[in-house]
């Protein structure tokens, strides 16, 4: 055993340059990512208000979350609803649009890539949807429907529970063609062209067969990367909800796990309780990602 350690130690000494190069990044990564995750898990078992020293209270925060906090249950329901819709839809949209764009000539391809990617890098421009769905008749949606005579009076889109979720999903989808989309565009361009020609000789007769038998299997690494990005963002809906539906939203109709976390962490200063919300979010995000990774490994096998 001591032999194994001294062997490793020698190997580490020989590679000290590698560690020196890694050190600055890894130290910051440990301090600002790894340490906070561990702290959050520990704090989730305490009562902590930022003033007194944290007091250990066992599983109390968790039992309170699931048994006493009705709004948390709304938050979970909404988060899952958002994720189940925007996750797969945005993932498929990223791929389908990248796939069609890939058939275009290079100039047109660059232009269409910009068109689809632009919303996701425009920062807080999603507030424009506030004007599109504004509750008076000057909003585009109301104005249009009133003009056509479909509506008799303007709808308070962002104040009525039945519309809020749908609008947030729409805006979230509008914003969702980001890094994953670019990875697909790039991945499609690197699929070896000779595979398609060989496929044609082997009896592949149309683009759908080509997509299924050649393109998708050769893109598995990008598909896995894109999945991570889309899943993680689809579970983290908060900014759009707060900007469009307000905080808190009408009857908590647009509450998500993240907005619930913000509520307890920055408004009520119940840090232990907020940490248990964060820990549950962490488990949901990591768990979903790992399961989907497992499933995607099977694509084209």
């Amino acid at each position: 055993m001591s032999n194994w350690w001294s062997l490793k130690w020698n190997e580490m000494k020989k590679n000290k340059h590698s560690y020196v190069l890694l050190a600055p990044y890894m130290i910051l990564f440990a301090v600002f990512t790894v340490l906070p995750v561990i702290m959050s898990m520990i704090l989730s078992f305490t009562y902590f208000n930022m003033l007194e020293f944290p007091k250990f209270i066992g599983w109390h925060n968790y039992s309170r979350l699931f048994l006493e906090d009705d709004i948390f249950l709304i938050a979970i329901k909404n988060t899952i609803l958002f994720a189940v819709i925007t996750g797969p839809v945005s993932y498929i949209a990223c791929f389908v649009f990248a796939w069609i764009i890939n058939e275009l000539t290079p100039k047109l391809r660059a232009f269409m890539t910009l068109v689809f990617y632009a919303p996701s890098i425009s920062g807080n421009v999603f507030f424009i949807w506030l004007m599109i769905f504004s509750g008076d008749r000057y909003g585009i949606a109301n104005g249009f429907l009133l003009k056509l005579g479909i509506l008799m009076e303007p709808i308070q889109w962002l104040k009525e529970e039945k519309y809020i979720l749908a609008i947030i999903i729409l805006v979230q989808l509008w914003l969702s063609l980001g890094t994953g989309f670019l990875a697909f565009i790039a991945g499609l361009q690197t699929v070896d062209r000779s595979l398609y020609e060989a496929g044609a000789v082997d009896g592949i007769r149309n683009r759908w067969q080509e997509l299924w038998y050649i393109t998708l299997p050769s893109m598995r690494p990008q598909l896995m990367f894109g999945a991570v990005i889309q899943i993680t963002t689809s579970l983290a809906v908060a900014d759009v909800s707060i900007a469009l539906a307000g905080f808190p939203s009408v009857n908590y109709a647009a509450e998500t796990i993240v907005t619930h976390l913000i509520d307890y962490g920055t408004t009520r200063f119940e840090m232990g309780y907020a940490s248990s919300i964060a820990t549950i979010l962490f488990i949901i995000m990591l768990g979903t990602n790992l399961i989907v990774q497992k499933l995607l490994r099977k694509v084209g096998e």
Binding site: F29, F32, T33, V34, L35, P36, V37, M39, S40, L43, V228, I229, I231, T232, T233, L235, A236, A238, V258, L261, I262, G265, M271, A274, S275, A278, T279, L281, F282, M285, L286, N289, L290
Partner: peptide, 12 residues
Amino acid sequence: SLMFTPAVTAIP
């Protein structure tokens, strides 16, 4: 760490 967002670690 790509699999969760900064919201998770905001408090610590």
